[in-house]
């Protein structure tokens, strides 16, 4: 770890003013990912501007939707009754992420900005274009079991690890920011970018631009999150899936689908979404959508299993969201969202 300056911000304006002029300065909120990377010498900030005391911890009603303050903890958001009731996909995504202790510290603004879990990114002894531009991508010909199927480049095959971001992408959330050029609103699917030739840049945020809130638009349908991981709790997704489904009687009016664990950003599935619109839910329909979803997947040496896994997961998520099959646990809980549930006797003892 390298020496750095630390200061507490007293207002969003002051926070922005403290970070914007200094290229090595950065905001810190929960720090659950940032501090690990500092200890690994991957992040070497010259200044940390602590935003954890800013008044960004409110969840308020907003034009039929909700405005979630960027400083709300993952734990608080997951337990919020309006989120539980209207956007269970958000609670489910949050509760399948990390551990209780980490969720208590992590924030909604910070969570979508966490860096990739690609092991090569985290080891300064190895090449990584995201960490050290131009040094090469060790994952491309290395251990890439956890890496991208979609949207990768020769420079980077890393994936984005956030569960919450997958849910927010499916809900078309809007990110509210303030920065040196004033406030703006970013549609969530535009927050993250694909690696291209500059994988060191994860998002479309400018330096010194601070997320102040995340808006959930009005939504009257059903939503659901399903996640497969290497262990039953506290593991990043191999593949995850968020579904937001709005019905017109027996037919799908609007479907929004996003995958986690398969790309450098939450991966929306426009072709599969379009296939569902106007149709009556059935397993056959969902299979067709899943086939369309993975038609242009480009597997690496070790991650081809994510294609059948992702297809099957998408079908399962659609079956459960549409009500053709029961959820594995109460909506809005980790039990609904964790494939396989808890170890122990069947049915899973939640």
């Amino acid at each position: 770890m390298h020496p750095f300056q630390y200061q507490r911000a007293t207002s969003t304006a002051q926070a922005v003013a403290a970070v914007a002029p200094e290229p090595g300065a950065t905001f810190i909120a929960g720090g659950t990912s940032h501090l690990d990377l500092m200890k690994e010498d991957v992040h070497r900030p010259s200044r940390l501007v602590d935003i954890s005391l800013l008044p960004l911890k409110q969840i308020t009603a907003l034009a039929g939707g909700l405005r979630l303050g960027a400083g709300v903890s993952n734990t608080a958001a997951a337990a919020h009754p309006e989120i539980q009731r209207r956007y269970p996909v958000v609670s489910e995504a949050l509760l399948t992420g990390a551990s209780t202790q980490i969720r208590n510290a992590a924030t909604l603004g910070g969570n979508p900005l966490q860096r990739t879990r690609c092991p090569y990114f985290r080891d300064p002894a190895q090449p990584c274009n995201k960490r050290a531009p131009g040094s090469g991508c060790a994952a491309l010909g290395g251990i890439n079991r956890g890496h991208a199927l979609f949207g990768a480049s020769d420079a980077c095959v890393a994936i984005h690890p956030s569960d919450l971001a997958v849910a927010l992408a499916a809900l078309d959330a809007v990110v509210q920011t303030t920065g040196p050029r004033g406030p703006r609103a970013i549609p969530f699917p535009e927050l993250h970018r694909l690696p291209g030739a500059t994988p060191q840049v994860d998002t479309t945020l400018a330096h010194g631009e601070l997320i102040t809130a995340i808006d959930l638009p009005a939504f009257a349908g059903r939503s659901h999150y399903l996640k497969v991981r290497d262990r039953a709790s506290y593991a990043f997704a191999l593949v995850s899936c968020a579904v937001a489904l709005e019905m017109d009687g027996e037919h799908v009016r609007r479907a929004r689908l996003a995958l986690g664990g398969v790309a450098h950003k939450p991966w929306r599935l426009p072709a599969a979404e379009a296939l569902l619109v106007g149709e009556k839910p059935s397993e056959k329909l969902f299979r067709a959508a899943a086939d369309a979803a993975f038609a242009d997947a480009r597997p690496l040496e070790h991650n081809a299993y994510k294609i059948p896994l992702g297809r099957n997961l998408l079908v399962q998520a659609l079956l459960e969201t549409s009500g053709l099959q029961a959820l594995a646990g109460p909506a809005g809980t980790a039990f609904a969202a964790s494939v396989g549930g808890l170890a122990g006797t069947f049915p899973a003892p939640y």
């Binding site: 099957n312 997961l313 399962q316 494939v339 396989g340 808890l342 170890a343 122990g344 069947f346």
Partner: peptide
């Protein structure tokens, strides 16, 4: 769960 390869010890 054969569809996802998930194994749990009961």
């Amino acid at each position: 769960d054969e569809a996802t390869g998930v194994i749990r010890v009961a």
